[in-house]
Design a binder for these strands. Structure first.
Length: 609
RNA sequence: GCUCCCGUAGUUUAAUGGAUAAAACAUCUCCCUUCUAAGGAGAGAAUAGGGGUUCGAUUCCCUUCGGGAGCACCA
């Protein structure tokens, strides 16, 4: 019968038709209809049916009748299976003071499941094809890749995969931080204390050491000057600027950065070198994380386009001077102005982001750009978007995909300065150690132990799942124990389930792939089918809210359902041959969905663990 | 000082304004001669306080308290 609707869509359509008829009967304009006519899945609360609707409550103030009356009138318009053989609806009940509860014939799950095809799912789900740039990861040159970057990368990778899966044209963009006063500091530090060989050997560690040393020395310098400065600021050799005075080192850093902006060959060479070494080191990590990028481009590469942008801005009359700096005023938008050039002529973060935006629009013509950037930059990006729109860089829809901070145990802030930053490499190392220990424990005999690649898959699965299972907006507490736990709601639990199913399927041989009529179906069978059929709904939700946690939660509950299923029903030993084959087919599909879901999350699903 | 985000079992997290707030970890009971016990079955345990809007509030509004972030020459 070529039934491609999910049960949810089926009920949704039925309800819409009934609603349309109802509105027509009562002469209500469709514009007045309740906006929210969604239905709700009633999962395990069976007394409320399979799906439930609350439209009657929402219609009440419009129609000026009681929800109960309205519900009755709507229900009368819904075709039931017993009167209409094409209907899957067994009964519709009105509960409470106006809930409309739909009870479906089990047959819908079997029919729908029989037609379910993972292959055709992306085609069914695909919306209007569009080109989308997803900016994510974006670490800084010469700085460690910490837990926050990890969360960002894993989320961005998921969003990229999800968009690709639903047939969008994705450009994965890594916007490297390789410009700004901090590089002036780094250059000063390198010129004073640097060692080329050490940097070649261990670039990020060594460059970070230099940066920290600079910070400490500058702080010492400032403290020693502080008492003097208070009484006679000009005598301390400090240059008062923008209400703050600079120490010798800080002034040097600023000078070096200015040289950089003006194209000083030595400094540019140094920066390129730092960048090259850093990218080399990050590439190893990305490979390990199974993340890739179409464009890796540093902020430094945009500086050349500055005159063009500024020319455009002043021609349109947006560029103003204020206290020696060049700004775009956002007074009419009720926001603080955006600084594009410091009083010493140097560019700022906003400048480079606008330049980058201009470049992206001109070169790639995207329909949409997603900025996967931490929550703390909400205001910053809001300003960026407002300016972009104001000055005509509005060809693409810009969206900030923000995510909360990652805290340390006890909700303490993790910071480089306080020395309690957690790097991605440390996390991977620790979790890998644990995974290896578990692997040895489960497989004491080295001959039957899966390859070390599997251990790595499990460790990374644990880390990624841990980050992706949480809603992206909220701040999360980084909990090492939780990440090291391979039980319950964890990546390894999903991988374990997949491996167990794979084992059953491989033992069953070719029968597992044969499609069978869904004749059987006790409660556990139906429960699994129901879950499988929710897959596309879940992906839709993820797409709408640009978050991974609905998928993670879904896969966990699917795995739960499956574990309970084969615990209760030994499959290979089933004497009813038809039932055995049908169930094997069901497991085949389940395994495919698990695998596909994990793949979207960027998690490997080994067949044996 | 102003703006934004957050406050849910002991802990870490779920819940498009819907009915009896859902899980995991931890705690406690059971289940390995049976397709991998990284598993399954079960128990106890929560919406920071106070107002308001609504038929109905964890969700929206106000307020107090507590935590975090941001507020033009950093990124």
């Amino acid at each position: 019968m070529g039934f491609l609707l999910t049960p949810r869509e089926y009920i949704q359509n039925t309800l819409r038709e009934a609603m349309e008829a109802y509105l027509k009967n009562n002469k209500i304009a469709s514009s007045q209809a309740p906006r929210n006519d969604n239905i709700e899945s009633k999962g395990n609360r069976e007394q409320f049916g399979d799906f439930s609707s609350t439209v009657a409550f929402q219609l009440a103030p419009i129609v000026k009748k009681s929800p109960l009356e309205i519900a009755k009138e709507i229900v009368a318009l819904i075709p039931l299976a017993r009167n209409d053989s094409s209907s899957y609806i067994q009964k519709v009940e009105i509960a409470g003071n106006g809930f409309i509860n739909f009870f479906l014939d089990e047959k819908i799950y079997r029919d729908s499941f029989r037609e379910f095809s993972l292959k055709s799912l992306p085609i069914v789900m695909a919306g209007k094809e569009s080109k989308v740039i997803i900016e994510f990861s974006s670490p800084n040159v010469a700085k460690p890749f910490h837990i926050g970057h990890l969360r960002n990368t894993v989320l961005g990778e998921f969003l990229s995969r999800l968009h690709e899966y639903t047939n969008h044209n994705v450009i994965r963009w890594n916007h490297l931080g390789d410009w700004g006063t901090q590089f002036g500091k780094l250059i000063v530090a390198y010129k004073k204390w640097g060692d080329e060989k050490k940097i070649d050997k261990n670039p990020i560690t060594e460059l970070l050491y230099l940066y920290v040393k600079f910070t400490n020395e500058a702080k010492k310098e400032r403290e020693s000057l502080a008492p003097l400065e208070k009484s006679r600021p000009e005598a301390a050799g400090a240059v008062p600027e923008a209400g703050r005075s600079l120490t010798g080192l800080e002034q040097q850093a600023r000078d070096e950065f200015n040289k950089l902006e003006k194209g000083d060959a030595v400094n540019i060479e140094l920066l390129k070198w730092f960048q090259k070494e850093t990218i080399k080191e990050f590439s190893l990590l990305y490979k390990r994380l199974d993340s890739r990028f179409d464009v890796i481009k540093g902020e430094s590469s945009y500086i050349a386009g500055k005159e063009k942008l500024f020319g455009l801005l002043s021609k349109k009359g947006f560029l103003e001077k204020s206290e020696g700096a060049k700004i775009v005023s956002l007074e009419s938008e009720g926001m603080l102005p955006v600084l594009l050039e410091k009083s010493d002529g140097a560019t700022l973060y906003h400048t480079r982001d606008l330049l980058s935006l201009q470049y992206r629009l001109e070169k790639y013509h995207p329909d949409r750009i997603l900025y996967v950037v931490g929550d703390e930059q909400t205001l910053y990006l809001k300003q960026l978007f407002v300016v972009a729109k104001k000055i005509g860089l509005n060809a693409a829809d810009l969206q900030h995909v923000s995510y909360g901070l990652v805290f340390g145990p006890g909700k303490k802030k993790l910071s480089t300065r306080e020395g309690n930053v957690i790097t991605a490499n440390e996390i991977i190392k620790d979790v890998l150690f644990k995974a290896s220990a578990v692997m040895h424990e489960k497989h004491p005999d080295a001959a039957t132990r899966p390859p070390t690649k599997v251990t790595e898959d499990i460790a990374l699965g644990a880390i990624k799942y841990n980050l992706l299972k949480e809603s992206r907006q909220s701040d999360v507490v980084f909990d090492f124990d939780a990440m090291l736990s391979f039980q319950g709601n964890s990546g390894p639990y999903l991988q374990y389930t997949y491996a167990r199913i794979s084992k059953i399927l491989s033992r069953a041989g070719i029968f597992a792939s044969a499609k069978r009529d869904m004749l059987y179906g006790d409660r556990t069978d139906i429960a699994v089918m129901k879950k499988i059929l929710e897959f596309s709904d879940v992906l839709d939700t993820c797409m709408q809210i640009l978050s991974s946690h609905p998928l993670a939660e879904y896969l966990f509950s699917l795995a739960n359902e499956l574990n309970a299923f084969y615990e209760k029903n030994p499959i290979l030993k089933d004497e009813d041959a038809k039932r055995r084959k049908q169930r094997l087919y069901m497991l085949r599909i389940s395994a495919d969905v698990l695998q596909q879901g994990l793949e979207l999350l960027g998690i490997q699903a080994p067949k044996q663990i």
